[in-house]
């Protein structure tokens, strides 16, 4: 309803009193007053200037919202002398119906429109008087509406650019991927969603990542510890893979097994195979290779580890999760005696 109102107001009310271009069309001063049923007080009347095509002051189509999303149509237009009446309906996002009438002369008009929507009924009274000339193509409601939309789009883009610059400065890596806009159903939501991303700022972010990667271990780890950063770094080019190899070689030389375990699978795996697999847990974990030994999770056939008592090792009762299902089946079989 509110969008529809804005649409109507845009038709009936000029949003600014900017200079009017001289032309062959007519500049009108319009005063309108809205009343909504159920509201304890009437909204104050508003006066504004509107540029109309010559002789169109008594065309009820002027009262239709110009927003295409509202899909408004006029019907049952009747003209009798200086009186015009009509019906209107909008089937867009905020559906409504209405009827209106006006009395007009070449220099003035007055009328009323009644609208019915899911939010209730609304009455609008309006009157106008011709006060000069203007250029409709430049100053008409459609032109102003388009100009306002363009202005809003420009402001929105400015905001997005500002956000994206901040995202680069703040290392907000997730901004640089195409957003999932499956939630957005209509055009405006899709646009809002699309504006949440900064794919066009990827070059700047890639440059920033490249600089971090050139800063040595700290810079590499800052990237490597962030999943989005790694994904983006890989998409930025081959420098991440190169940096990984250089970083891992440095850790291998320095025997930094914790860092190797965290970031260097290629170097860790052979060390795991050589120093961890099959070893006693305490011996493996107490060795320098402890972090690498934990990296690869479980393995089979590890030798017996220490026990609390000095007896021989216990017999294996290796279990299989599927065994419980088999046990269950056996129980069932026994229960029914087959």
């Amino acid at each position: 309803m509110s969008k529809l109102l804005i649409g109507l107001m845009l038709v009936c009310i000029s949003v600014s009193d900017s200079a009017w271009a001289a032309g062959s069309d007519e500049l009108w001063e319009i005063t309108n007053k809205m009343e909504m049923e159920g509201m304890p007080f009437a909204m104050p009347g508003q006066t504004s200037k509107v540029c109309m095509q010559k002789g169109k002051q008594n065309d009820p189509a002027q009262a239709l919202p110009k927003d295409k999303e509202q899909n408004c149509k006029m019907s049952d237009v009747k003209m009798s002398g200086n009186k015009t009446s009509w019906k209107m309906s909008c089937s867009g996002k905020d559906p409504m119906t209405g009827e209106g009438e006006m009395i007009s002369s070449s220099s003035s008009y007055s009328g009323k429109v009644k609208m019915h929507s899911a939010d209730g009924d609304m009455n609008m009274r309006y009157e106008g008087k011709r006060i000069g000339s203007c250029d409709y193509a430049k100053d008409g409601p459609e032109a102003k509406f388009t100009a306002m939309k363009n202005d809003m789009d420009a402001k929105s883009e400015q905001e997005r650019v500002k956000e994206c610059k901040n995202a680069v400065d703040d290392d907000s890596y997730s901004h640089f991927f195409k957003p999932d806009c499956s939630w957005a159903k209509d055009a405006s939501s899709k646009k809002v969603c699309a504006n949440m991303a900064c794919p066009d700022f990827r070059p700047q972010m890639c440059d920033r990542i490249a600089k971090k990667l050139s800063l040595g271990d700290d810079g590499y780890e800052e990237i490597a510890n962030n999943k989005d950063a790694v994904k983006l770094a890989k998409e930025c080019g081959p420098s991440y893979e190169k940096s990984t190899r250089a970083y891992c070689n440095r850790q291998l030389q320095a025997k930094n097994y914790g860092k190797l375990a965290a970031h260097c699978d290629k170097e860790s795996k052979p060390l795991f195979d050589k120093n961890c697999a099959g070893r006693d847990y305490t011996a493996a974990m107490d060795s320098a290779y402890g972090p690498i030994c934990r990296r690869y999770g479980k393995w089979k056939n590890a030798p017996a580890d220490e026990g609390e008592q000095s007896d021989n090792g216990g017999s294996s009762a290796g279990s299989n999760p599927a065994k419980s299902i088999l046990d269950g089946a056996k129980n069932l079989k026994g229960l029914f005696g087959f």
């Binding site: 847990y281 305490t282 999770g297 479980k298 590890a302 216990g314 009762a317 290796g318």
Partner: peptide, 16 residues
């Protein structure tokens, strides 16, 4: 109860 590879199993289970 009754494991043959207790510590590694435990570490895996706890991490998991």
């Amino acid at each position: 109860l009754h494991d043959t590879n207790r510590w590694w199993d435990a570490a895996d289970i706890l991490d998991f």
